[in-house]
Computed example of a mutant assay.
Amino acid sequence: MPSRDRIFSRIRHNLGRGPLEGEAAQALKARIEGHAPNIVPKRTNIPHKEQVNLFQAKAEALAATVARISSFDDVPEALRDYLTAHNLATRIKMSPDKSLDSLPFDKTPMLEIKRGAAAPEDEVSLTPAFAGIAETGTLCMASSPETPSTLNFLPENHVVVIKASQITGTLEDSWERLRKTYGAGNLPRTVNFISGPSRTADIEQTLIMGAHGPRRLHILIVDDGPQD
């Protein structure tokens, strides 16, 4: 018996019932496929330009840094400026995602770009985001061979490129976009929600940055016009 069936069988056993049938089964199926949102805060019911501003404010409140740029062509120079400001190495491990293929790194020949999954020696990663959530300043990151999750967590410095049009109001909006992009039942193997750099205060309530992931998170918002 597959693991999924064994789990459901044990749950049914503990509930003292068998599989649902008839109207009860149809009602459950409709509920699962309906994807009804939970309570949505009114603060996200604002024009998209204000959602982008809210996303930035929330992200910065969580210790991320944010820069606004006018086009993808500005990414290499913005990345160079960030590395210089923090005295970081100019070796970058970049996602092999096709959305980054056209970045004009010939403008910044001092940057050494390698592509692929992160390795222990990588200090800085550059990745695209799938979506941004204005409600909480959170990045939604979808895993794939082109967007390996190791780039989100292994290097101590994570730089993320996101288009303004990818910023949505709520968590529910990001899941709806995932289902629309990948198709129901065909979601990425891993979806990570990242709110600021890694931190913990588990030990004596002392805040430690970079405990389980990057010490720094820098977000480049590309102004590509209004949301679709």
Results as ranks from 00 to 15, higher is better:
S143Q: 12
Q51N: 07
E112I: 10
N45Q: 15
R199A: 13
L207S: 00
M141K: 04
D173M: 06
A24H: 11
T206D: 01
A89I: 02
G169L: 09
P145W: 05
D173L: 09
D122C: 05
P145C: 04
S71Y: 04
A67H: 03
V222A: 09
L88F: 06
A64F: 02
R189A: 14
Q56M: 08
I221G: 02
G213S: 05
A27Q: 08
P37K: 04
E121M: 09
P76M: 12
A164E: 13
G213I: 06
S149R: 15
T127W: 01
I221M: 05
N152P: 05
H212R: 01
M209Q: 08
A25F: 08
D223Y: 04
P128T: 11
A61F: 04
A67Q: 14
T90K: 15
R4Q: 09
M110F: 01
D73A: 15
D223I: 02
R80S: 12
T147P: 00
D5N: 11
T190F: 11
L54K: 10
H86W: 09
D5C: 00
H86Y: 15
Q227M: 13
K93E: 02
E50Q: 14
P104L: 03
G22W: 10
E77I: 14
E121Q: 13
I221W: 10
L83V: 04
T44N: 08
N38F: 13
P76H: 08
A67N: 09
A117C: 00
A36T: 15
D81N: 12
R31K: 12
P47T: 03
S99T: 15
A142R: 00
G22H: 02
T136M: 02
S165Y: 02
K49P: 00
A85H: 06
D106T: 10
S99D: 13
I39H: 13
A64N: 06
L15S: 02
S143A: 15
R177E: 09
L178M: 15
N53L: 12
G196A: 07
M209V: 05
D74S: 13
T181K: 14
E204K: 11
T150F: 03
W175C: 02
S149L: 04
S102P: 00
I208C: 05
I162K: 11
E33I: 07
I167V: 12
R31Q: 12
T170Y: 10
S149C: 09
L126G: 04
D73S: 15
E121N: 12
